[in-house]
Design a protein around this nucleic acid. Structure first.
Lengths: 210, 210
DNA sequence: ACTCTTCTTGAGCGCTCGCTCAAGAAGAGT
DNA sequence: ACTCTTCTTGAGCGAGCGCTCAAGAAGAGT
């Protein structure tokens, strides 16, 4: 509410901003998360932020830059970061993916924010002129698949998976399940249903539960 | 190429249409499949169909009606109907879902048409004024989940699944996997990768492969 | 031949889109 | 007090959106 969080040191010269940039960005995250990039207009954004278009453009550049910042903020938030945290914190590969699926089930269906994952659903339908936005999120998703595979290869090297496990395909499988959980959440599935889906998905773990 | 396919009996009165309605509809299916509902403009549609806007509106009503017709056509095409066909034709529940996943892997990554499933990806991002279109496709998807569950309950009754199997959750699981396959295909995964994903997904079948 | 019906053509409607600009306001620096 | 810088305000730009209308064209019915 008070004071911008970007007060690194001294206040920059010129007239100070009259709105909270981070709060406005959080509003943008919400709207983009809910409807997606193109379906959220600058008019809706400025109305929800309580500012005029020129202020938005002065603070964020243009709509694409605002979206990219929104994706970054989302990725640093708990709901956007839980995958990376689980991959880093869990001792075993199975433990990591079990946690990812179970947390995805809970987080994607959490009614306190839009359903599903912003990175999965915010730029599915775009016109040609915003193809770079779609490509940006696709790269984010495919980077997630790559991080899955990296963790699975580590687990295989540690003897947690059969030596002949196709880690690339298994990573793609878990990515598909996570994206499917996001889609099901957006279609109305609740946390309980998704939690049970997660348990079915984990039953596919090669060589039985580790 | 020649002759409208809608020639039920006598030609209707008035000046005959100069373009092939079904061919134009097939073009619309392609565009909506590729980019989605709102990201495909009437201008792009008419340009690709080779007709003027007034002809499109005379033949199809409005953009929403055209989209709904396109979804119907897609649903009757092999790539849109394979799920229902597999559910009806396969003798066992496991056989049905194995076929569904394997065909989804092949069909969603088939480079001869847009990747993934139109029903999964064509109305993810819509403005408020097209909320009914998003709801329409969501209903289509959830009806698919219901048909999955119906088939699983049949299988459970036939002793193909443990008596305590949570068929609703298992149906949601397979739906999530199918939707995940669609998403992965749109992100560039090829048929070989998706086929391996399908095999991992099938390993989750309760009580082992039937 | 004439009418009736429907489609095609070309122009263009009202609206919203992302975005910008000139003028004024509010702080810091001197 | 004055300047310098930056933000806010209000108006509005050009472009594209979905869609429509009047006029003419092309067939069937009589």
């Amino acid at each position: 509410m008070t004071g911008g969080t970007t007060e690194g040191k001294t206040r920059p010269r010129g007239r100070p901003r009259t709105f909270d940039r981070d709060a406005a960005l959080a509003v943008a995250v919400r709207l983009f998360w809910e409807r997606g990039y193109e379906a959220t207009s600058v008019g809706e954004l400025t109305a929800a932020m309580g500012i005029r278009p020129a202020s938005l453009y002065a603070a964020f550049g243009d709509k694409k830059s605002l979206f990219r910042e929104a994706v970054e903020v989302y990725g640093r938030s708990p709901v956007g970061a839980f995958v990376g945290v689980a991959l880093a914190e869990e001792a075993t590969a199975y433990g990591a993916f079990a946690r990812i699926l179970r947390e995805a089930a809970r987080v994607y269906a959490d009614p306190s924010h839009p359903a599903g994952c912003l990175a999965n659903s915010a730029a599915t339908n775009v016109t040609e002129q915003d193809a770079e936005i779609a490509a940006f999120l696709r790269d984010v998703r495919n980077a997630g698949v790559a991080s899955f595979e990296e963790r699975l290869r580590q687990g295989r090297a540690a003897g947690e998976l059969p030596k002949d496990t196709d880690t690339a395909a298994l990573a793609s499988y878990f990515a598909a399940v996570v994206q499917g959980l996001s889609q099901r959440a957006r279609d109305g599935a609740d946390a309980q249903e998704l939690a049970r889906v997660a348990e079915f998905a984990l039953a596919a773990w090669p060589g039985g539960r580790d």
